[in-house]
Simulated assay, not measured.
Amino acid sequence: MKSISVKELAAMGQDAAIVDVREDDEYADVRVAGTKSIPLSRFAQSLAEVPASGTVYVMCAAGGRSAQAAAYLEDQGYDAVNVAGGINEWQLDGLPVVRR
């Protein structure tokens, strides 16, 4: 499975298709602007919500859940990349977030 750092992802700008697999309450508290929320708890049932073309960058809190989702997407034929460190690392690096 491919992986990317939060700094590398941030450098891509708004064009990167980011899917956040944290649960709704986590996503509501803090998120990266422009991300699509598809919680891991209903990820398989919500596959139609994942962007169908291009690379999909998968994010969670620290990288564990997103690794599971990215592996699942790869099995389904998607070009998926895990975001190492997730939103926690994103915030530690001082990158911009949206808060509730």
Rank of each mutant, 00 (worst) to 15 (best):
A44W: 05
L47V: 04
P96L: 13
A17W: 09
Y72A: 07
V56A: 03
T55H: 04
I38K: 00
S3Y: 04
A10G: 09
A17H: 09
Q45S: 15
I87F: 10
D15A: 13
P39S: 02
Q68L: 13
E74V: 14
Q45T: 14
K2Q: 13
A16P: 02
D20R: 05
F43A: 01
E74A: 14
V56C: 02
S5V: 09
G34K: 08
M1L: 11
E26L: 07
D24I: 04
V97W: 06
C60S: 10
V32I: 15
D15V: 14
S37E: 03
G85W: 10
V97H: 06
V83L: 06
Y57M: 04
I4H: 07
M1V: 10
V50R: 01
V58P: 01
K7V: 13
W90I: 10
V81F: 00
Y27H: 07
G94Y: 14
L95D: 06
E8L: 07
V21K: 03
S5E: 13
V56W: 05
E23C: 01
A10N: 14
D20S: 08
Q14W: 10
S53N: 15
L40M: 10
E89N: 15
A48E: 15
D24S: 13
T35M: 08
V58H: 04
K36N: 13
V56G: 00
D29R: 14
E23I: 01
M12I: 05
D25C: 00
I18E: 02
I87Q: 05
M59A: 04
N88Y: 15
V30T: 13
V98S: 11
M1A: 14
A33G: 07
W90R: 07
D79Y: 09
C60L: 11
I38A: 00
V6Q: 12
N82T: 01
S37C: 11
R22H: 02
I87W: 13
L95F: 13
A17N: 11
L73K: 08
G64E: 14
G63C: 09
Y57T: 00
D25G: 00
A84Y: 06
I87M: 10
V50H: 00
F43V: 03
S46F: 00
A28E: 02
V6M: 11
G63I: 03
S41I: 04
S41K: 11
R31A: 11
R100Q: 09
L47Q: 03
R65M: 04
W90Y: 10
A67C: 08
G63R: 15
P51E: 09
L73R: 05
M12W: 07
D20F: 07
Q14N: 15
V32Q: 05
S3W: 12
T55S: 07
A10D: 15
A33C: 03
E49M: 11
A70P: 00
V21L: 00
A61P: 03
N88F: 15
I4P: 06
K2I: 06
R99G: 06
L73V: 01
D20C: 04
K36A: 15
D29N: 14
E26H: 09
S3M: 13
V32N: 05
A33P: 08
P51W: 12
Y78L: 03
V98R: 05
L92K: 13
E49L: 15
G13L: 04
K7M: 12
